[in-house]
């Protein structure tokens, strides 16, 4: 009897590892091996194919002290990310609150559907459309300015080093197209009814209720979005790659594009890997800090 149980247990466990095999084969091949390989090659002068020479920490020294393009790009990235995180939190939460407070169930549903639609249009189409909006002659932005008599403000938005970065920030205005609103709305709808009733009894309305009740209780979603914003913001370079190539000059250069250019334009894959490792370390640090310092809703509940 006992023997049979053991055998059955082994049989079942064999099954477990069989089920996990495809996942781990793929992870090892396409995630862990490249990650380890990137860290390893960050200590090399490497073009990916032939040249492969160990140079110790020279790549990292260059990143820290010599690469002024990278330094400019980090400053740009920080500005873009600060702005992106700001509006990326405020706008969707605000809209979610308004939606949550709406009385008509039918309209609530209609707005939800409408607001999720832009997320389904390929991101690239959005980017390219904004590229059209910023066009100097037949761009929507300049046409609008001329139409309201402010033609003197018209300019080549993405070609002017003074405004190009701000033009990129403004893209996607009013910054609610996406699933952010839905996620926050879900968070708000999960707030227990008793809590909301208490607010009503205690007279906690408006801003007070938002900061004391709603916000702490959707902290889980906020935290997740902040982490995703960091991870996306630090590495993202799609917009720059398509619309500005980091220019004019280096006005819109970001670290991701510096990495991409070094790897695929200049064949400096070792150096690019070192930049990647720096991003990795930064992301790890920020994720840890986020977990540690942004309290989640549950912790709030337990404390109060």
């Amino acid at each position: 009897m006992k023997r049979r149980t053991v055998r059955r247990e082994i049989e079942r466990k064999k099954f477990v590892y069989l089920f996990l095999a495809p996942t781990f084969v793929l992870l090892l091949l396409f995630e862990y091996y490249p990650a380890v390989s990137a860290v390893y090659h960050s200590f090399f002068d490497w073009d990916g194919f032939y040249v492969n020479r160990f140079i110790g920490l020279a790549n990292y020294r260059e990143i820290l002290f010599d690469d002024w393009v990278l330094r400019t790009s980090v400053a740009n990235m920080l500005k873009l990310m600060a702005f992106g995180l700001g509006v990326g939190l405020v706008m969707p939460i605000f809209v979610a609150e308004v939606l949550f407070s709406l009385r008509s169930i039918r309209w609530k549903y209609i707005y939800r559907v409408l607001l999720v639609l832009p997320a389904l249009i390929p991101g690239i189409v959005g980017m390219l459309l904004w590229g059209y909006i910023y066009e100097p002659t037949y761009g929507l932005a300049n046409q609008l300015l001329r139409a309201v008599g402010l033609g003197s403000l018209a300019r080549e938005w993405l070609g002017d080093p003074k405004v190009a970065l701000y033009a990129l920030m403004f893209m996607g205005f009013p910054w609610v197209g996406g699933i952010g609103v839905l996620i926050y709305l879900a968070g708000l709808q999960n707030i227990p009814q008793e809590v909301l009733d208490c607010c009503k009894l205690d007279g906690a309305h408006g801003i007070i209720r938002f900061f004391k009740v709603d916000l702490p209780l959707i902290m889980g979603q906020v935290k997740l979005n902040v982490i995703m914003g960091f991870i996306g913001g630090i590495q993202g370079f799609g917009v720059q790659l398509i619309l500005t190539k980091g220019g004019p000059g280096f006005a819109t250069m970001v670290p991701g594009l510096v990495l991409y250019d070094n790897a695929f334009k200049y064949g400096r894959m070792g150096y690019a890997s070192a930049i990647g490792v720096c991003m990795f370390v930064t992301i790890m640090g920020l994720t840890y800090a986020n977990m540690k310092y942004l309290k989640s809703g549950i912790e709030y509940q337990a404390k109060s």
């Binding site: 490249p34 390989s37 990137a38 590495q235």
Partner: peptide, 19 residues
């Protein structure tokens, strides 16, 4: 598996390409 979330796509872009 959870740890993968932390690995940025740009870090592995180059070596995955070579792979």
């Amino acid at each position: 598996i959870l740890g993968i979330v932390m690995i940025p796509g740009t870090l592995t872009l180059i070596t995955r390409f070579v792979l």
